[in-house]
Design a protein around this nucleic acid. Sequence first.
DNA 1: TAGTTTAGTTGACGTAGATCAACTGGCCTG
DNA 2: CAGGCCAGTTGATCTACGTCAACTAAACTA
Lengths: 250, 250
Amino acid sequence: MIAVSEHNAPSDKHCPHNAAINCASCRLSAICLPLALAQDEIVQLDEIVQRGRPLQKGQHLYRENDHFSSVFAVRSGAVKAYSMSDSGEEQVTGFYLPGEILGMDGIGHNRYASSAMAMEVSAICEIPFANIEDLSGKLPNMQKHFFKLLSQEIVEDQRHITLVSKHTAEERLASLLVSISARNARRNLSPLNIRLPMSRTDIGNFLGLTIETVSRVFSRFAKQGLIEIDKKELVVLDIDALKHIASLGH
Amino acid sequence: MIAVSEHNAPSDKHCPHNAAINCASCRLSAICLPLALAQDEIVQLDEIVQRGRPLQKGQHLYRENDHFSSVFAVRSGAVKAYSMSDSGEEQVTGFYLPGEILGMDGIGHNRYASSAMAMEVSAICEIPFANIEDLSGKLPNMQKHFFKLLSQEIVEDQRHITLVSKHTAEERLASLLVSISARNARRNLSPLNIRLPMSRTDIGNFLGLTIETVSRVFSRFAKQGLIEIDKKELVVLDIDALKHIASLGH
DNA sequence: TAGTTTAGTTGACGTAGATCAACTGGCCTG
DNA sequence: CAGGCCAGTTGATCTACGTCAACTAAACTA
Protein backbone atom coordinates (compact mmCIF):
# COMPACT_ATOMS: atom_id res chain seq x y z
CA MET A 1 0.00 0.00 0.00
CA ILE A 2 2.63 2.58 0.96
CA ALA A 3 6.11 2.56 -0.49
CA VAL A 4 8.65 0.92 1.79
CA SER A 5 11.92 2.78 2.03
CA GLU A 6 14.69 1.03 0.13
CA HIS A 7 17.30 2.03 2.66
CA ASN A 8 16.01 1.09 6.06
CA ALA A 9 19.45 1.66 7.47
CA PRO A 10 19.50 3.52 10.77
CA SER A 11 19.87 7.25 10.30
CA ASP A 12 18.97 9.37 13.31
CA LYS A 13 17.44 7.48 16.18
CA HIS A 14 15.87 10.62 17.51
CA CYS A 15 14.11 11.70 14.34
CA PRO A 16 10.37 11.12 14.85
CA HIS A 17 9.90 10.06 11.23
CA ASN A 18 12.74 7.60 11.47
CA ALA A 19 11.88 4.21 9.98
CA ALA A 20 14.71 2.38 11.69
CA ILE A 21 12.78 1.54 14.76
CA ASN A 22 10.91 -1.47 16.05
CA CYS A 23 7.82 -1.93 18.14
CA ALA A 24 9.74 -2.90 21.24
CA SER A 25 11.76 0.30 21.25
CA CYS A 26 9.05 2.60 19.86
CA ARG A 27 8.11 5.20 22.40
CA LEU A 28 4.46 4.79 21.38
CA SER A 29 4.41 1.11 22.29
CA ALA A 30 2.47 1.81 25.47
CA ILE A 31 -0.49 3.26 23.60
CA CYS A 32 -0.23 1.49 20.24
CA LEU A 33 -0.62 -2.12 19.21
CA PRO A 34 2.09 -3.63 21.45
CA LEU A 35 0.07 -2.41 24.43
CA ALA A 36 -1.54 -5.78 25.00
CA LEU A 37 1.34 -8.06 24.14
CA ALA A 38 4.11 -9.79 26.06
CA GLN A 39 7.77 -9.21 25.11
CA ASP A 40 8.08 -12.32 22.97
CA GLU A 41 4.77 -11.59 21.29
CA ILE A 42 5.93 -8.10 20.34
CA VAL A 43 8.80 -9.69 18.46
CA GLN A 44 6.29 -11.62 16.34
CA LEU A 45 4.28 -8.46 15.71
CA ASP A 46 7.44 -6.65 14.80
CA GLU A 47 8.17 -9.08 12.01
CA ILE A 48 5.00 -8.22 10.15
CA VAL A 49 5.01 -4.45 10.63
CA GLN A 50 6.23 -2.53 7.61
CA ARG A 51 7.60 0.96 8.06
CA GLY A 52 7.43 3.16 5.00
CA ARG A 53 9.01 6.47 4.16
CA PRO A 54 7.10 9.45 5.47
CA LEU A 55 3.99 10.64 3.72
CA GLN A 56 3.96 14.27 2.67
CA LYS A 57 1.07 16.55 3.54
CA GLY A 58 -1.86 15.83 1.26
CA GLN A 59 -0.69 12.36 0.23
CA HIS A 60 -3.07 9.45 0.56
CA LEU A 61 -2.45 6.36 2.62
CA TYR A 62 -5.34 4.64 0.91
CA ARG A 63 -8.50 5.63 -0.88
CA GLU A 64 -12.12 4.69 -0.52
CA ASN A 65 -12.85 1.45 -2.41
CA ASP A 66 -9.19 0.49 -2.66
CA HIS A 67 -8.70 -3.20 -2.03
CA PHE A 68 -8.22 -3.67 1.71
CA SER A 69 -5.03 -5.34 2.78
CA SER A 70 -3.60 -3.57 5.81
CA VAL A 71 -4.37 -1.49 8.81
CA PHE A 72 -2.03 1.36 9.72
CA ALA A 73 -0.59 2.92 12.84
CA VAL A 74 0.40 6.57 12.90
CA ARG A 75 3.97 6.95 14.18
CA SER A 76 4.24 10.70 13.73
CA GLY A 77 2.23 13.45 12.12
CA ALA A 78 -1.54 13.30 11.71
CA VAL A 79 -3.98 11.65 9.32
CA LYS A 80 -7.61 12.32 8.52
CA ALA A 81 -10.09 9.73 7.27
CA TYR A 82 -12.98 10.86 5.13
CA SER A 83 -15.58 9.38 2.86
CA MET A 84 -17.59 10.65 -0.06
CA SER A 85 -21.33 10.16 -0.11
CA ASP A 86 -23.14 9.25 -3.31
CA SER A 87 -23.95 12.90 -3.66
CA GLY A 88 -20.30 13.81 -3.66
CA GLU A 89 -19.87 15.67 -0.39
CA GLU A 90 -17.06 14.84 1.92
CA GLN A 91 -17.53 13.59 5.47
CA VAL A 92 -14.48 13.58 7.71
CA THR A 93 -14.90 10.47 9.86
CA GLY A 94 -11.86 10.76 12.08
CA PHE A 95 -8.53 12.30 12.95
CA TYR A 96 -5.69 9.90 13.77
CA LEU A 97 -2.73 10.95 15.90
CA PRO A 98 0.48 9.07 16.75
CA GLY A 99 -0.17 5.69 18.35
CA GLU A 100 -3.64 5.39 16.81
CA ILE A 101 -4.79 2.73 14.35
CA LEU A 102 -6.76 3.37 11.20
CA GLY A 103 -8.05 1.42 8.24
CA MET A 104 -10.19 -1.04 10.16
CA ASP A 105 -13.29 0.03 8.25
CA GLY A 106 -11.93 -1.99 5.34
CA ILE A 107 -12.19 -5.38 7.02
CA GLY A 108 -15.93 -5.78 6.55
CA HIS A 109 -16.09 -5.70 2.77
CA ASN A 110 -12.41 -6.05 1.78
CA ARG A 111 -12.47 -2.46 0.59
CA TYR A 112 -11.73 0.69 2.51
CA ALA A 113 -14.92 2.57 3.32
CA SER A 114 -12.98 5.82 3.59
CA SER A 115 -9.91 7.57 2.27
CA ALA A 116 -6.97 8.48 4.49
CA MET A 117 -4.86 11.57 3.89
CA ALA A 118 -1.84 12.91 5.75
CA MET A 119 -2.59 16.35 7.17
CA GLU A 120 1.12 16.96 7.69
CA VAL A 121 4.33 14.99 7.13
CA SER A 122 3.57 11.66 8.76
CA ALA A 123 5.36 8.39 9.40
CA ILE A 124 3.18 5.34 9.22
CA CYS A 125 3.46 1.68 10.17
CA GLU A 126 1.63 -0.69 7.88
CA ILE A 127 0.36 -3.98 9.29
CA PRO A 128 -0.91 -6.48 6.70
CA PHE A 129 -4.23 -7.75 7.95
CA ALA A 130 -3.77 -11.32 6.75
CA ASN A 131 -0.80 -11.52 9.09
CA ILE A 132 -2.84 -10.08 11.91
CA GLU A 133 -5.45 -12.76 11.37
CA ASP A 134 -2.80 -15.48 11.43
CA LEU A 135 -1.19 -14.05 14.50
CA SER A 136 -4.57 -13.64 16.19
CA GLY A 137 -5.21 -17.34 15.72
CA LYS A 138 -1.97 -18.08 17.54
CA LEU A 139 -1.89 -15.32 20.15
CA PRO A 140 -5.14 -14.95 22.10
CA ASN A 141 -3.89 -11.58 23.39
CA MET A 142 -3.61 -10.32 19.86
CA GLN A 143 -7.08 -11.51 18.92
CA LYS A 144 -8.55 -10.01 22.05
CA HIS A 145 -6.78 -6.73 21.47
CA PHE A 146 -8.09 -6.42 17.95
CA PHE A 147 -11.63 -7.23 18.99
CA LYS A 148 -11.25 -4.49 21.59
CA LEU A 149 -9.85 -2.00 19.12
CA LEU A 150 -12.74 -2.53 16.74
CA SER A 151 -15.29 -2.37 19.52
CA GLN A 152 -13.81 0.85 20.86
CA GLU A 153 -14.06 2.45 17.47
CA ILE A 154 -17.75 1.53 17.45
CA VAL A 155 -18.23 3.17 20.83
CA GLU A 156 -16.38 6.28 19.71
CA ASP A 157 -18.41 6.53 16.54
CA GLN A 158 -21.61 6.22 18.54
CA ARG A 159 -20.46 8.98 20.86
CA HIS A 160 -19.75 11.06 17.80
CA ILE A 161 -23.29 10.43 16.55
CA THR A 162 -24.61 11.82 19.83
CA LEU A 163 -22.25 14.77 19.54
CA VAL A 164 -23.34 15.83 16.07
CA SER A 165 -27.02 15.03 16.44
CA LYS A 166 -27.72 16.41 19.91
CA HIS A 167 -25.14 19.02 20.81
CA THR A 168 -24.60 22.68 20.04
CA ALA A 169 -21.69 24.09 18.08
CA GLU A 170 -19.93 25.13 21.30
CA GLU A 171 -20.35 21.69 22.84
CA ARG A 172 -19.03 19.99 19.72
CA LEU A 173 -15.94 22.15 19.48
CA ALA A 174 -15.22 21.97 23.21
CA SER A 175 -15.54 18.21 22.94
CA LEU A 176 -12.99 18.05 20.12
CA LEU A 177 -10.53 20.21 22.03
CA VAL A 178 -10.90 18.10 25.17
CA SER A 179 -10.37 14.96 23.09
CA ILE A 180 -7.20 16.25 21.44
CA SER A 181 -5.93 17.50 24.77
CA ALA A 182 -6.45 14.06 26.34
CA ARG A 183 -4.76 12.33 23.43
CA ASN A 184 -1.80 14.69 23.75
CA ALA A 185 -1.56 13.84 27.43
CA ARG A 186 -1.52 10.12 26.63
CA ARG A 187 1.60 10.73 24.57
CA ASN A 188 3.17 12.78 27.35
CA LEU A 189 2.74 15.97 25.41
CA SER A 190 1.34 19.10 26.95
CA PRO A 191 -2.44 18.83 27.26
CA LEU A 192 -2.72 22.64 27.18
CA ASN A 193 -0.46 23.62 24.30
CA ILE A 194 -2.08 22.14 21.25
CA ARG A 195 -1.11 22.30 17.63
CA LEU A 196 -4.16 21.65 15.49
CA PRO A 197 -2.97 19.65 12.50
CA MET A 198 -6.27 20.03 10.65
CA SER A 199 -7.82 22.95 8.80
CA ARG A 200 -10.97 24.75 9.90
CA THR A 201 -12.70 23.10 6.98
CA ASP A 202 -11.78 19.64 8.31
CA ILE A 203 -12.86 20.55 11.83
CA GLY A 204 -16.19 21.86 10.58
CA ASN A 205 -16.72 18.86 8.38
CA PHE A 206 -15.90 16.46 11.20
CA LEU A 207 -18.25 18.23 13.61
CA GLY A 208 -21.07 18.88 11.16
CA LEU A 209 -20.54 22.66 11.18
CA THR A 210 -19.49 25.27 8.64
CA ILE A 211 -16.07 26.89 8.81
CA GLU A 212 -17.72 30.19 9.72
CA THR A 213 -19.34 28.65 12.78
CA VAL A 214 -16.07 26.99 13.80
CA SER A 215 -14.30 30.30 13.48
CA ARG A 216 -16.95 32.17 15.45
CA VAL A 217 -16.96 29.64 18.28
CA PHE A 218 -13.16 29.75 18.51
CA SER A 219 -13.40 33.53 18.74
CA ARG A 220 -16.09 33.29 21.39
CA PHE A 221 -14.02 30.83 23.45
CA ALA A 222 -11.05 33.19 23.16
CA LYS A 223 -13.14 36.19 24.20
CA GLN A 224 -14.37 34.24 27.24
CA GLY A 225 -10.78 33.50 28.20
CA LEU A 226 -11.06 29.74 27.70
CA ILE A 227 -8.39 29.51 25.02
CA GLU A 228 -5.85 31.54 23.10
CA ILE A 229 -5.73 30.76 19.44
CA ASP A 230 -3.53 31.85 16.57
CA LYS A 231 -4.09 29.92 13.38
CA LYS A 232 -3.22 26.31 14.28
CA GLU A 233 -1.55 27.04 17.60
CA LEU A 234 -3.95 26.79 20.50
CA VAL A 235 -3.39 27.31 24.22
CA VAL A 236 -6.02 25.96 26.58
CA LEU A 237 -6.49 28.42 29.45
CA ASP A 238 -9.41 26.77 31.21
CA ILE A 239 -9.65 23.05 30.53
CA ASP A 240 -12.29 22.54 33.20
CA ALA A 241 -14.59 25.05 31.56
CA LEU A 242 -14.10 23.28 28.23
CA LYS A 243 -14.81 19.91 29.80
CA HIS A 244 -17.91 21.34 31.38
CA ILE A 245 -19.16 22.73 28.09
CA ALA A 246 -18.32 19.45 26.33
CA SER A 247 -20.40 17.43 28.79
CA LEU A 248 -23.37 19.75 28.74
CA GLY A 249 -26.72 18.41 27.71
CA HIS A 250 -28.52 20.07 24.92
CA MET B 1 -27.71 -12.43 31.23
CA ILE B 2 -31.18 -13.44 30.14
CA ALA B 3 -33.11 -16.16 31.87
CA VAL B 4 -32.88 -19.43 30.06
CA SER B 5 -36.18 -21.23 29.82
CA GLU B 6 -36.40 -24.14 32.23
CA HIS B 7 -38.44 -26.18 29.82
CA ASN B 8 -36.66 -26.16 26.51
CA ALA B 9 -38.86 -28.98 25.35
CA PRO B 10 -40.19 -28.55 21.81
CA SER B 11 -43.54 -26.83 21.74
CA ASP B 12 -44.61 -25.46 18.38
CA LYS B 13 -41.95 -25.65 15.69
CA HIS B 14 -43.64 -22.90 13.76
CA CYS B 15 -43.84 -20.34 16.52
CA PRO B 16 -41.31 -17.61 15.73
CA HIS B 17 -40.44 -17.19 19.41
CA ASN B 18 -39.86 -20.90 19.79
CA ALA B 19 -36.70 -21.69 21.71
CA ALA B 20 -36.51 -25.29 20.60
CA ILE B 21 -34.51 -24.58 17.52
CA ASN B 22 -30.87 -24.74 16.53
CA CYS B 23 -28.66 -22.67 14.28
CA ALA B 24 -28.61 -25.26 11.52
CA SER B 25 -32.38 -25.33 11.20
CA CYS B 26 -33.00 -21.65 11.99
CA ARG B 27 -34.46 -19.92 9.01
CA LEU B 28 -32.28 -16.88 9.76
CA SER B 29 -29.05 -18.87 9.41
CA ALA B 30 -28.34 -17.35 6.01
CA ILE B 31 -28.14 -13.82 7.39
CA CYS B 32 -27.08 -14.43 11.00
CA LEU B 33 -23.92 -15.82 12.53
CA PRO B 34 -23.89 -19.23 10.78
CA LEU B 35 -23.58 -17.34 7.49
CA ALA B 36 -19.84 -17.80 7.30
CA LEU B 37 -19.52 -21.27 8.76
CA ALA B 38 -19.35 -24.78 7.36
CA GLN B 39 -21.86 -27.41 8.51
CA ASP B 40 -19.58 -28.97 11.12
CA GLU B 41 -18.60 -25.53 12.38
CA ILE B 42 -22.24 -24.58 12.88
CA VAL B 43 -22.59 -27.53 15.23
CA GLN B 44 -19.81 -26.08 17.38
CA LEU B 45 -21.47 -22.68 17.34
CA ASP B 46 -24.75 -24.28 18.24
CA GLU B 47 -23.31 -25.71 21.41
CA ILE B 48 -22.52 -22.30 22.84
CA VAL B 49 -25.66 -20.47 21.80
CA GLN B 50 -28.21 -20.02 24.59
CA ARG B 51 -31.84 -19.48 23.71
CA GLY B 52 -33.86 -17.72 26.37
CA ARG B 53 -37.57 -17.23 26.81
CA PRO B 54 -38.96 -14.28 24.90
CA LEU B 55 -38.45 -10.77 26.19
CA GLN B 56 -41.59 -8.72 26.68
CA LYS B 57 -41.91 -5.24 25.23
CA GLY B 58 -39.94 -2.78 27.34
CA GLN B 59 -37.72 -5.41 28.96
CA HIS B 60 -33.98 -4.94 28.88
CA LEU B 61 -31.53 -7.38 27.39
CA TYR B 62 -28.68 -5.56 29.09
CA ARG B 63 -28.01 -2.11 30.44
CA GLU B 64 -25.26 0.41 29.91
CA ASN B 65 -22.30 -0.36 32.21
CA ASP B 66 -23.45 -3.90 32.90
CA HIS B 67 -20.54 -6.31 32.89
CA PHE B 68 -20.08 -7.52 29.33
CA SER B 69 -20.27 -11.25 28.80
CA SER B 70 -22.28 -12.01 25.67
CA VAL B 71 -23.37 -10.73 22.33
CA PHE B 72 -26.92 -11.37 21.20
CA ALA B 73 -28.73 -12.26 18.01
CA VAL B 74 -32.34 -11.24 17.48
CA ARG B 75 -34.42 -14.26 16.45
CA SER B 76 -37.80 -12.50 16.35
CA GLY B 77 -39.17 -9.13 17.35
CA ALA B 78 -37.08 -5.97 17.45
CA VAL B 79 -34.62 -4.38 19.85
CA LYS B 80 -33.31 -0.84 20.23
CA ALA B 81 -29.93 0.09 21.65
CA TYR B 82 -29.52 3.45 23.32
CA SER B 83 -27.09 5.23 25.57
CA MET B 84 -27.35 8.02 28.08
CA SER B 85 -24.96 10.93 27.88
CA ASP B 86 -23.49 12.48 31.04
CA SER B 87 -26.18 15.08 30.78
CA GLY B 88 -28.89 12.47 30.92
CA GLU B 89 -30.42 12.57 27.47
CA GLU B 90 -30.99 9.41 25.56
CA GLN B 91 -29.40 8.64 22.21
CA VAL B 92 -30.81 5.72 20.25
CA THR B 93 -27.78 4.15 18.57
CA GLY B 94 -29.44 1.40 16.60
CA PHE B 95 -32.43 -0.76 15.79
CA TYR B 96 -31.84 -4.51 15.59
CA LEU B 97 -34.11 -6.80 13.59
CA PRO B 98 -34.15 -10.61 13.31
CA GLY B 99 -30.83 -12.03 12.18
CA GLU B 100 -28.86 -9.04 13.46
CA ILE B 101 -26.22 -9.06 16.19
CA LEU B 102 -25.98 -6.57 19.04
CA GLY B 103 -23.93 -6.03 22.14
CA MET B 104 -20.55 -5.79 20.44
CA ASP B 105 -19.97 -2.34 21.89
CA GLY B 106 -19.24 -4.07 25.18
CA ILE B 107 -16.09 -5.84 24.00
CA GLY B 108 -13.82 -2.83 24.23
CA HIS B 109 -14.12 -2.09 27.93
CA ASN B 110 -15.84 -5.23 29.25
CA ARG B 111 -18.95 -3.15 29.88
CA TYR B 112 -21.83 -2.45 27.58
CA ALA B 113 -21.66 1.09 26.23
CA SER B 114 -25.41 1.09 25.62
CA SER B 115 -28.63 -0.40 26.93
CA ALA B 116 -30.76 -2.76 24.83
CA MET B 117 -34.53 -2.87 25.14
CA ALA B 118 -37.11 -5.01 23.36
CA MET B 119 -39.49 -2.81 21.37
CA GLU B 120 -41.93 -5.71 21.09
CA VAL B 121 -42.02 -9.34 22.22
CA SER B 122 -38.67 -10.68 21.04
CA ALA B 123 -36.81 -13.96 21.05
CA ILE B 124 -33.09 -13.66 21.52
CA CYS B 125 -30.07 -15.93 21.16
CA GLU B 126 -27.29 -15.26 23.64
CA ILE B 127 -23.73 -16.08 22.65
CA PRO B 128 -21.17 -15.91 25.45
CA PHE B 129 -18.22 -13.93 24.15
CA ALA B 130 -15.56 -15.97 25.91
CA ASN B 131 -16.76 -18.95 23.89
CA ILE B 132 -16.66 -16.90 20.72
CA GLU B 133 -13.05 -16.00 21.44
CA ASP B 134 -12.15 -19.65 22.01
CA LEU B 135 -13.97 -20.74 18.90
CA SER B 136 -12.37 -17.92 16.89
CA GLY B 137 -8.95 -19.21 17.84
CA LYS B 138 -9.89 -22.61 16.44
CA LEU B 139 -12.04 -21.65 13.47
CA PRO B 140 -10.47 -19.02 11.22
CA ASN B 141 -13.86 -18.55 9.55
CA MET B 142 -15.38 -17.60 12.86
CA GLN B 143 -12.63 -15.13 13.66
CA LYS B 144 -12.84 -13.60 10.23
CA HIS B 145 -16.58 -13.32 10.44
CA PHE B 146 -16.44 -11.50 13.75
CA PHE B 147 -13.82 -9.09 12.54
CA LYS B 148 -16.11 -8.41 9.59
CA LEU B 149 -19.16 -7.93 11.78
CA LEU B 150 -17.38 -5.40 13.96
CA SER B 151 -15.93 -3.59 10.98
CA GLN B 152 -19.32 -3.41 9.29
CA GLU B 153 -20.82 -1.85 12.37
CA ILE B 154 -18.10 0.81 12.22
CA VAL B 155 -18.93 1.53 8.60
CA GLU B 156 -22.63 1.75 9.40
CA ASP B 157 -22.04 4.09 12.29
CA GLN B 158 -19.92 6.32 10.11
CA ARG B 159 -22.64 6.42 7.50
CA HIS B 160 -25.04 7.35 10.25
CA ILE B 161 -22.74 10.21 11.29
CA THR B 162 -22.93 11.54 7.74
CA LEU B 163 -26.68 11.10 7.77
CA VAL B 164 -27.31 13.09 10.92
CA SER B 165 -24.66 15.73 10.38
CA LYS B 166 -25.14 16.52 6.69
CA HIS B 167 -28.63 15.53 5.63
CA THR B 168 -32.08 17.08 5.87
CA ALA B 169 -34.98 15.64 7.83
CA GLU B 170 -36.52 14.19 4.65
CA GLU B 171 -33.25 12.55 3.63
CA ARG B 172 -32.79 11.03 7.07
CA LEU B 173 -36.26 9.58 7.24
CA ALA B 174 -36.18 8.31 3.65
CA SER B 175 -32.86 6.68 4.45
CA LEU B 176 -34.31 4.87 7.47
CA LEU B 177 -37.27 3.61 5.46
CA VAL B 178 -35.03 2.36 2.68
CA SER B 179 -32.83 0.60 5.24
CA ILE B 180 -35.74 -1.13 6.94
CA SER B 181 -37.18 -2.08 3.58
CA ALA B 182 -33.88 -3.66 2.50
CA ARG B 183 -33.55 -5.53 5.78
CA ASN B 184 -37.09 -6.84 5.35
CA ALA B 185 -36.18 -8.06 1.89
CA ARG B 186 -33.13 -9.89 3.23
CA ARG B 187 -35.47 -11.87 5.44
CA ASN B 188 -37.80 -12.58 2.53
CA LEU B 189 -40.44 -10.27 3.91
CA SER B 190 -42.19 -7.72 1.80
CA PRO B 191 -39.95 -4.71 1.21
CA LEU B 192 -43.01 -2.53 0.69
CA ASN B 193 -45.27 -3.49 3.57
CA ILE B 194 -43.44 -2.42 6.65
CA ARG B 195 -44.38 -2.60 10.27
CA LEU B 196 -42.41 -0.03 12.23
CA PRO B 197 -41.61 -1.62 15.57
CA MET B 198 -40.34 1.64 17.06
CA SER B 199 -42.14 4.73 18.31
CA ARG B 200 -41.91 8.14 16.69
CA THR B 201 -39.84 9.20 19.67
CA ASP B 202 -37.30 6.46 18.96
CA ILE B 203 -37.19 7.31 15.27
CA GLY B 204 -36.65 10.97 16.02
CA ASN B 205 -34.02 10.24 18.59
CA PHE B 206 -32.18 7.86 16.25
CA LEU B 207 -32.22 10.39 13.41
CA GLY B 208 -31.50 13.48 15.48
CA LEU B 209 -34.96 14.97 14.94
CA THR B 210 -37.94 15.83 17.12
CA ILE B 211 -41.09 13.72 16.98
CA GLU B 212 -42.94 16.66 15.47
CA THR B 213 -40.53 16.80 12.56
CA VAL B 214 -40.76 13.02 12.08
CA SER B 215 -44.53 13.27 12.05
CA ARG B 216 -44.55 16.17 9.60
CA VAL B 217 -42.16 14.45 7.19
CA PHE B 218 -44.24 11.25 7.26
CA SER B 219 -47.30 13.37 6.46
CA ARG B 220 -45.45 15.11 3.66
CA PHE B 221 -44.28 11.79 2.17
CA ALA B 222 -47.88 10.54 2.34
CA LYS B 223 -49.21 13.71 0.71
CA GLN B 224 -46.66 13.29 -2.10
CA GLY B 225 -47.85 9.72 -2.63
CA LEU B 226 -44.56 8.11 -1.61
CA ILE B 227 -46.00 6.15 1.30
CA GLU B 228 -49.21 5.33 3.08
CA ILE B 229 -48.95 5.37 6.83
CA ASP B 230 -51.26 4.51 9.67
CA LYS B 231 -49.60 4.50 13.05
CA LYS B 232 -46.95 1.76 12.79
CA GLU B 233 -48.17 0.20 9.56
CA LEU B 234 -46.44 1.67 6.54
CA VAL B 235 -46.86 0.89 2.84
CA VAL B 236 -44.13 2.07 0.49
CA LEU B 237 -45.71 3.30 -2.74
CA ASP B 238 -42.62 4.64 -4.47
CA ILE B 239 -39.41 3.05 -3.26
CA ASP B 240 -37.35 4.62 -6.03
CA ALA B 241 -38.39 8.09 -4.98
CA LEU B 242 -37.44 7.28 -1.39
CA LYS B 243 -34.08 5.90 -2.50
CA HIS B 244 -33.53 9.03 -4.51
CA ILE B 245 -34.31 11.30 -1.59
CA ALA B 246 -32.14 9.16 0.70
CA SER B 247 -29.12 9.52 -1.58
CA LEU B 248 -29.52 13.22 -2.13
CA GLY B 249 -26.71 15.56 -1.22
CA HIS B 250 -27.44 18.33 1.15
C1' DT C 1 -68.66 4.24 30.67
C1' DA C 2 -66.57 8.06 32.10
C1' DG C 3 -61.93 9.61 33.04
C1' DT C 4 -57.14 9.49 32.60
C1' DT C 5 -52.98 8.54 30.16
C1' DT C 6 -50.12 8.05 26.21
C1' DA C 7 -48.75 8.32 21.13
C1' DG C 8 -49.27 10.87 17.45
C1' DT C 9 -50.66 14.99 14.46
C1' DT C 10 -50.90 19.79 13.16
C1' DG C 11 -50.26 24.84 13.55
C1' DA C 12 -47.84 29.28 15.00
C1' DC C 13 -43.65 31.12 16.19
C1' DG C 14 -38.57 31.40 17.60
C1' DT C 15 -33.63 30.45 16.99
C1' DA C 16 -29.05 28.22 16.14
C1' DG C 17 -26.46 27.87 12.72
C1' DA C 18 -26.24 28.10 7.42
C1' DT C 19 -25.54 31.15 3.69
C1' DC C 20 -23.79 35.06 1.38
C1' DA C 21 -20.60 38.59 1.23
C1' DA C 22 -16.83 41.65 2.44
C1' DC C 23 -12.49 41.87 4.39
C1' DT C 24 -7.52 40.52 6.29
C1' DG C 25 -3.11 38.63 6.29
C1' DG C 26 0.16 35.09 4.98
C1' DC C 27 2.59 33.09 1.31
C1' DC C 28 3.79 31.85 -3.23
C1' DT C 29 5.20 33.07 -7.99
C1' DG C 30 6.88 35.75 -11.62
C1' DC D 1 7.60 43.70 -4.66
C1' DA D 2 3.19 43.50 -7.17
C1' DG D 3 -0.41 40.45 -7.90
C1' DG D 4 -2.94 36.50 -7.00
C1' DC D 5 -4.41 32.89 -4.00
C1' DC D 6 -5.85 30.52 -0.06
C1' DA D 7 -7.21 30.11 4.93
C1' DG D 8 -9.39 32.31 8.15
C1' DT D 9 -12.36 36.02 10.39
C1' DT D 10 -16.44 38.84 10.92
C1' DG D 11 -20.99 40.81 9.86
C1' DA D 12 -25.86 40.69 7.89
C1' DT D 13 -29.51 37.96 6.60
C1' DC D 14 -32.14 33.63 5.84
C1' DT D 15 -34.18 29.10 6.91
C1' DA D 16 -34.85 24.33 8.47
C1' DC D 17 -36.00 22.60 12.26
C1' DG D 18 -36.96 23.12 17.23
C1' DT D 19 -40.22 24.71 20.68
C1' DC D 20 -44.61 25.47 22.52
C1' DA D 21 -49.29 24.62 22.42
C1' DA D 22 -53.76 22.79 21.10
C1' DC D 23 -55.98 18.87 19.51
C1' DT D 24 -57.36 13.67 18.32
C1' DA D 25 -57.69 9.00 19.07
C1' DA D 26 -56.41 4.74 20.96
C1' DA D 27 -55.76 2.10 25.20
C1' DC D 28 -55.87 1.55 30.17
C1' DT D 29 -58.23 1.84 34.59
C1' DA D 30 -61.35 2.07 38.08
